[in-house]
Design a protein around this nucleic acid. Sequence first.
DNA 1: ATGCATTACGCTTATCGTAAAGATG
DNA 2: CATCTTTACGATAAGCGTAATGCAT
Lengths: 90, 90
Amino acid sequence: MSLTYIQSFVAVAEEGHVGRAARKLHLTQPPLSRHILALEDELGTRLFERTPRGMRLLPAGEVFLSHARRILAEVDVAIERTKGAGGSDD
Amino acid sequence: MSLTYIQSFVAVAEEGHVGRAARKLHLTQPPLSRHILALEDELGTRLFERTPRGMRLLPAGEVFLSHARRILAEVDVAIERTKGAGGSDD
DNA sequence: ATGCATTACGCTTATCGTAAAGATG
DNA sequence: CATCTTTACGATAAGCGTAATGCAT
């Protein structure tokens, strides 16, 4: 599991489209598509349904999405608060 | 930021010793030491005090530790629940 | 000298981007 | 055939381990 892949997943979930999510992440489609596939492989389940219009969340994907957002938010908080705690030591 | 580095940090914090933490993680000292240095660099603050006996948490390190544990626990929950949600689809 | 952490350095593995290929309306 | 995602493949970058170095008792 990797935070990069989690960020990729959230972007694709929000855009519903690998191409648009890739631009948002300053990345090209292939690596982003691989992130999703790797995540699905690691979790042992499909997260998106592939449609001609793009990517649509499956139930397992929605479950993962809520956790993914929480994880990323928690990481942001961890960074911010740790920087705050150490700022006076430098 | 990387989940691997966060796991490394928690191991070193718990062992107070890079060598022991490395064995616990099935790794050697140098990469583990680099994980900690990279984390400190990214956070812009020292997380450990280096003593002749090993590594001792600084205040900023203790702040980061509590968040780190929460992040790793949340990741575990995310995996478990997503697998559970998708298990019937396969 | 001992017991730590860190730095140097060569190698392996992971990840990227361009280009080509599948798949579906 | 148009619009997506995915696979191939060559190149770059990240990460590991052994060995050497630094630092403090």
